[in-house]
Design a protein around this nucleic acid. Sequence first.
DNA 1: TTCCAGGTCCGGC
DNA 2: GCCGGACCTGGA
Length: 322
Amino acid sequence: MPPDPQSTGLVALAVPRVGLRAGSAAREPIQGRTGVPVLMTVDQPLDLASTLLSGQSFRWQRDAEWFEGVVFNNIVRMRQDVAGIEFTSAPDDESFVRPLVRDYLALEVDLEGIYASIGADDRLKAAIARYRGLRVLRQDPWECLVSFICSSASNIPRISSNIESICAAFGREVRAGDRVRSTFPTPQELAEAGEERLRRLGVGYRAPFIASTARAIADGVPDLMTLREAPYEEALRELTALDGVGDKVANCVLLFSLDKLEAFPVDVWVERALQEWYLRGADKKLTRSKMRLWARDYFGPYAGYANQYLFHDRRLQGRRRW
DNA sequence: TTCCAGGTCCGGC
DNA sequence: GCCGGACCTGGA
């Protein structure tokens, strides 16, 4: 693909994901304006709706063909058309936000190559045909980490509600025209919030996990952005040392925010999919982390993409049939 | 009312 | 290492 220095990820790495407006006074509202929609061309398969609503991220809200979320401390609105993506951002202008959004959508990742790598079996081939253009996002690892700590024994509507509550309570207000949202709080902000105030927001038994993990990340142990450069196994070890982070949550963070496309989160949906469609005999009784090893071996370096297509397929089928 | 939901942790084999 | 129970809360 053509070299595009703004989509390599290097630019985004040089820009802190948290605290882009660190010069602002703490908790001072970020005042914006309504942006004029600009076009971002896309030369890769992209199904924006599936990508944003497939349970990788929990802050995107749909309004007809527009999707509104808060990323990089901006309210971003996007819609897909034949030419690419129309989007607006506020308070920062679109020229600043565009490369960040390209990076967020991982538009430099060669999906055709990945399809060729994982699409050998019929089950995946069919899922790829159904959800062609579903992409694995490259999110802010801190927001991703907290989101998936919240995900345990929960469901997407509740996770979204928990995350919005956390942002409203401890983040900073962002405005775009008449829209008001809040940024995702920094590790410091959540560490200061503490367990009790988190619990009052309705996150339940996850409150002490979030508080403890926020404290660790605020102290730089581990440094999440460094994990993006670390080998998979090392990053996995560092993440699972955090409170409330087991094999499944860690693999979600590795896949959806830390560029580890071999990560393979095994939740109840993926477990059922593997048992029913792939595993035979005694293998059906494998523990979840053994299933992850099996999948990494079977699907290869892009096992995470295979996971996302299987998960999406299984979840939507589940909604239809059972 | 009871059960279950995108798990993790802890204690007992 | 594996297994079972507890853990918040909201919706069916």
